[in-house]
């Protein structure tokens, strides 16, 4: 039933797949962190005509399944002349989906910067750009690092969904072996084990961030 030979034979492919998963997560994280920050700032500085629709769109993206969003991007965008590979679609979907979460996290951080800091920036006639880059964000971001960390781990956990849009990631490799050799037990089990080997240390790290930066600073 359980054959170690199959495990050894499938490990190289699974390892390759895991690297694809990690790459997608990495780029997705970069996108989610930067896009979320942009959304949070727009939300703060823009007038109601922009802010309210933005809040609605973010709420919509956050409340609907990432898997369906993936399919939407993968099958609908080509109709508008935008053809992305499965990997690119996955990175965009992961990044945009989780930017709606990181935007909330940044928002909490920005709101925690005391009023006096904003007023002082105005009083000293610091330019709007400098006010954000030198005064507000340096105070807002450290306090939200633990909350951000949790979402980055969540992104890693969602990344295997990319196999649904033809990406041959760790789950995709397992599926491939399963349907080719009819050996399904070992590849799926090893995919899970490899994944755990990455994600459990990652979530421990996220929890360490929490104890280190603590809720008191948030």
């Amino acid at each position: 039933m359980w054959e170690w030979q199959v495990v050894w034979d499938s490990l190289p492919a699974l390892w390759k797949g895991l690297q694809v998963t990690l790459q997608a997560t990495f780029w997705g994280i970069l996108l989610a962190m930067s896009l979320g920050l942009i959304f949070a700032i727009i939300r703060r500085v823009s007038p109601g005509v922009v802010r309210l629709p933005l809040i609605g769109v973010l709420e919509f993206i956050r409340s609907t399944p990432l898997l369906v969003q993936l399919f939407f991007l993968f099958y609908v965008l080509p109709n508008y002349g935008i053809t992305l590979s499965g990997f690119e679609t996955g990175v965009v979907a992961l990044g945009v989906h989780f930017s709606t979460y990181t935007a909330e996290v940044y928002r909490a951080g920005i709101e925690s910067v005391p009023r006096g800091q904003w007023e002082a920036s105005t009083a000293l006639s610091i330019s709007p750009v400098q006010k954000w880059t030198r005064i507000v964000l340096p105070q807002a971001i450290p306090s939200v690092i633990p909350a951000l960390g949790n979402y980055l781990v969540a992104m890693l956990k969602e990344a295997p969904l990319l196999s649904a849009v033809t990406v041959v990631d760790v789950l995709g490799e397992a599926q491939r072996i399963c349907s080719r050799d009819f050996n399904c037990l070992e590849p799926y089990t090893m995919a899970g084990v490899l994944f755990l080997a990455i994600s459990i240390p990652a979530s421990f790290l996220a929890r360490r961030l929490e104890t280190r930066f603590g809720p008191t600073t948030a």
Binding site: L185, L196, S203
Partner: peptide
């Protein structure tokens, strides 16, 4: 375990691998 692992991999494992055991 459940916070650390991916739901989609668990679903595949429980549906396709468990019956082989």
């Amino acid at each position: 375990f459940f916070r650390g692992s991916s739901a989609i991999i668990q679903l595949y494992w429980a549906y396709y691998a468990l019956p082989i055991i």
